[in-house]
Design a protein around this nucleic acid. Sequence first.
DNA 1: AAAAGAATTATACGAACGTTTGGGGTGCAC
DNA 2: GTGCACCCCAAACGTTCGTATAATTCTTTT
Lengths: 225, 225
Amino acid sequence: MTARFEAPREDSKIEAAAGPMVFIVEDDVSMRRSLTNLFKQVGLNAVTFGSAREMLQSKLPDVVSCLVLDVRLPGVSGLDFQSELAKLNIKIPVIFITGHGDIPMSVRAMKGGAVDFLTKPFRDQELLDAVLAAAEQDRKRRSAEQIVTHLRSLFEALSPREQEVMKLVATGLMNKQIAAELGLAEITVKIYRGHVMKKMRARSLAELITMAATLGFRANRTEQT
Amino acid sequence: MTARFEAPREDSKIEAAAGPMVFIVEDDVSMRRSLTNLFKQVGLNAVTFGSAREMLQSKLPDVVSCLVLDVRLPGVSGLDFQSELAKLNIKIPVIFITGHGDIPMSVRAMKGGAVDFLTKPFRDQELLDAVLAAAEQDRKRRSAEQIVTHLRSLFEALSPREQEVMKLVATGLMNKQIAAELGLAEITVKIYRGHVMKKMRARSLAELITMAATLGFRANRTEQT
DNA sequence: AAAAGAATTATACGAACGTTTGGGGTGCAC
DNA sequence: GTGCACCCCAAACGTTCGTATAATTCTTTT
């Protein structure tokens, strides 16, 4: 092991993508500070906001993250903010903390998909456990979502005809039937089908069917509702 | 609106399979009675138990149902009972009711998958709404489960060799490759494959692949964990 | 205007699939 | 021991699939 050049360790501009991020929406300044300290101590990247609006206005980085949210906030309440995030299709896992909670509040939060609902005072470890669980949940969701996003982009790169053919192939129709359905010659369908396999990078019909299923094309009447 | 004959309302022997059933586990006798009355009034079939053990000992009918569960019970607590049901793989939706609840309790219940957590006193309508939602949830779960159960029974009716072939077909292998994998002649694989299609009642490869996916056979590395 | 890509079809051929017909053998249950 | 299910294979034939070659038309991009 001779001494050699290595990539510098202090390139703090890259580390943004390192660990999970924790967003904190909390109006109480001292609480905010203590939360931030807690997270920094265990190496978590924490970013704080004083209100829901503040957080919505800043553009959130696209990394594994979770949200520690106070229920009682100036302006929109934490619970309403949770609904709002859902409506905006922002799927960040939420951990509520509150000093003045009640049961209906916690139930509403949990129904809304919250990871946890902690009442002050709580032990640091409780919050950290919740944050870690939330981050893990977000990581899984992202990795699943990334797959369908990738597939969708491949699919959208298909020509319209190719897309139609792919859908019908996934339905289980034969080339002949697809041709009839689309008013084409069978040979044409075969060619588009070949394009589909190449462009979707499917190495077998089984893979293509699986992709189609992932994209939400239903093959048969296996399930509904 | 002329008077006309209608199906008789009193055929109580058939109605067992009619609507959803509501199980009630509650030790307080007067509460039990009032709950029963409430459900009867809206045409729901209610069955009560005084404790968790009582309910576990009676054999539950296999119909759409839900469980209204008091948190504070003699013997096992409602929350422990919920865990126990999960461990026993009994997936009945649970609605908690309690007179002496706190937030950690409700959070644990909701994390455990409870549909709702109501504190006494609650409005009748609140409980009814929860029960209806729970029943609907159970109905969906059952209909989904029934499909995989059916598929599994078809799959298990295959001979061992046929099962192996089906798995490999679902993987996207060609007959030739399957033959090599299993040390068979290609023609043999073709024949088993034909059996698989018939016995699984698949009318196309696409359907078979979908079935295999439903049964949990993964085709490619599309997703994990 | 030329290039590029889409949509479309034809002819042709080889590979893969599916089924039928007709055999072999084993092992178990009645 | 006869029947039955499973296991295994072959020859043969027809169908379906996949791809290559080649061509026409249209639209869009450069």
